[in-house]
């Protein structure tokens, strides 16, 4: 077996760019997904019954569809509905939409975990629904849901690999491309694995650090 890392150094620029594309699609998609998820959870909480039902249907539909199929629907099926997106944009939109329903469920459980009495106290002091959500519910539920959010983020990081199917020039697409062109599978796949491992390790470390920071008030 030959093991020659020169193929990596020779393509360093392309790999670095692919790494950036992976990070961009992952983070942009996740942030949008988080915002959309919070919005869905809040609307399900405060919106009327019909809206609640509608959102529930949306959640079940997205959860019931494989990510790859969602990707095909948006990227290849989109133009039939007048939705023409570039590959990277389509990737970001899909990650956002796909993750939003999972994030929504995480947020929903978080809202439920903050005792009702704390809201009653705030209500009686004249605080509004949004103020209570922002100042009382979110900071507390963050401590509770942070592990689930971090978990979801690591999953999404790896899901970006699927974007290679719709020609997004991210890590998996570029490295497997180099591999098949030059028959250097071991080297490229090794780098690929290390790259994802690195991202996920950084994420979980940041998560643990955050957990300790936001949880200080719980210490006796």
């Amino acid at each position: 077996m030959t093991f020659d890392l020169s193929i990596i150094t020779a393509n360093a620029d392309a790999i670095w760019n692919a790494f950036l594309v992976t990070i961009y699609t992952w983070l942009a998609g996740s942030v949008l997904g988080l915002i959309a998820g919070l919005l869905i959870a809040a609307l399900m909480l405060f919106g009327g019954r019909p809206l609640q039902r509608l959102l529930r249907v949306f959640i079940e539909l997205v959860r019931g569809t494989p990510f790859l199929v969602i990707l095909f629907l948006v990227y290849y099926g989109g133009p039939s509905f007048g939705l023409r997106l570039g590959a990277i944009t389509a990737g970001v939109v899909c990650i956002a939409g796909y993750s939003s329903v999972y994030f929504a469920e995480i947020f929903r459980s978080g809202f439920a975990a903050v005792p009702r009495g704390q809201l009653e106290a705030g209500e009686c002091l004249g605080l509004g629904r949004l103020q209570l959500m922002w100042r009382v519910q979110l900071p507390q539920m963050l401590v509770l849901i942070l592990p689930s959010i971090i978990n979801m983020l690591t999953i999404l990081c790896k899901e970006t690999a699927v974007l290679s199917i719709i020609t997004v020039p991210e890590l998996t697409a570029v490295l497997t491309g180099i591999g098949t062109r030059t028959f250097t599978f071991i080297e490229t796949l090794l780098v690929l694995c290390i790259a994802y491992l690195l991202l996920i390790e950084i994420t979980s470390r940041a998560g643990r650090w955050l957990e300790r920071r936001v949880g200080t008030y719980l210490q006796r």
């Binding site: 009653e120 106290a121 507390q140 719980l218």
Partner: peptide, 17 residues
């Protein structure tokens, strides 16, 4: 409610503040 203050059995303080 403006001139009402209420105190609860379970205190209902906000623990993160």
């Amino acid at each position: 409610r403006r001139n009402l203050g209420i105190v609860f059995q379970q205190f209902n303080l906000w623990p993160h503040m």
